[in-house]
């Protein structure tokens, strides 16, 4: 089924360069279709008008050397159901940009906002390009692998040491030094 979709994309969209990605040989899971980042809008236009009727979710993954944005498409029709993962890769980490598909799917509005909020991919022509889960003035993109939490937010200390729960780390450390009994006794004293 994937090959059919790939040939459809390649025949309709000239610069899509769609290729099939199978799970690695020692791996498992779903296969997906990789397209050029420049052709996202045209490809989605082609697919959402023919094979699929719904965009389920946009999922961003940070692979450190590139950012990957996956579009999960589905056809909600009991007689003719199918789903596919269409993905694209962005190598520019500082300013990753894609074309918004808000004009094609109503779901895209919030999904793209979440993708921007979490991974930091910007979407051209988005009607309401704001963060969605984090506050508007939050710094950084939490789901990137090199993300570091900002220390101060609006004059408040983020993650103050006094409020951090380090019990599990303490337990691991003491287990290594063979001080388990001591730890248990302390925990009991504190009423845990």
């Amino acid at each position: 089924m994937h090959n059919e979709i790939i040939s459809l994309i390649n025949s309709k969209v000239s610069n899509a360069n769609a290729t099939l990605i199978n799970p690695p040989e020692d791996g498992a899971g779903d296969s997906s279709i990789l397209i050029n980042p420049e052709s996202v809008f045209e490809t989605m236009k082609c697919l959402l008008n023919s094979k699929f009727n719904a965009l389920q979710v946009i999922s961003g993954v940070d692979y450190t050397e590139y950012l990957e944005v996956c579009y999960m498409l589905a056809n909600f029709d009991p007689k003719d159901h199918r789903e596919a993962i269409i993905k694209t890769r962005l190598t520019d980490r500082d300013n990753p940009t894609l074309d918004s598909i808000c004009s094609l799917s109503l779901a895209a509005n919030w999904q793209e906002r979440e993708c921007y909020d979490m991974i930091g991919v910007k979407f051209n022509n988005h009607p309401d390009h704001r963060r969605i889960l984090c506050p508007d003035d939050w710094e950084g993109f939490p789901l990137r692998k090199d993300y570091k939490v900002q220390e101060v937010y609006r004059g408040m200390e983020v993650n103050p040491e006094a409020k951090m729960n380090r019990d599990d780390q303490l337990f691991e450390n003491q287990k290594q030094t063979g001080n388990e009994e001591e730890l248990l006794r302390k925990a009991l004293e504190r009423g845990l």
């Binding site: 799970p23 690695p24 020692d26 498992a28 899971g29 779903d30 997906s32 999960m72």
Partner: peptide, 26 residues
């Protein structure tokens, strides 16, 4: 330890379809 790869699994939850996109690096 999961093998390398990714999966998108969805089931019918009371409020609609819940999907889990799981990526593993082994």
């Amino acid at each position: 330890k999961l093998p390398k790869g990714e999966i998108y699994m969805r089931t019918e939850c009371p409020r609609g379809e819940l999907g889990v996109h799981l990526v593993s690096d082994g």
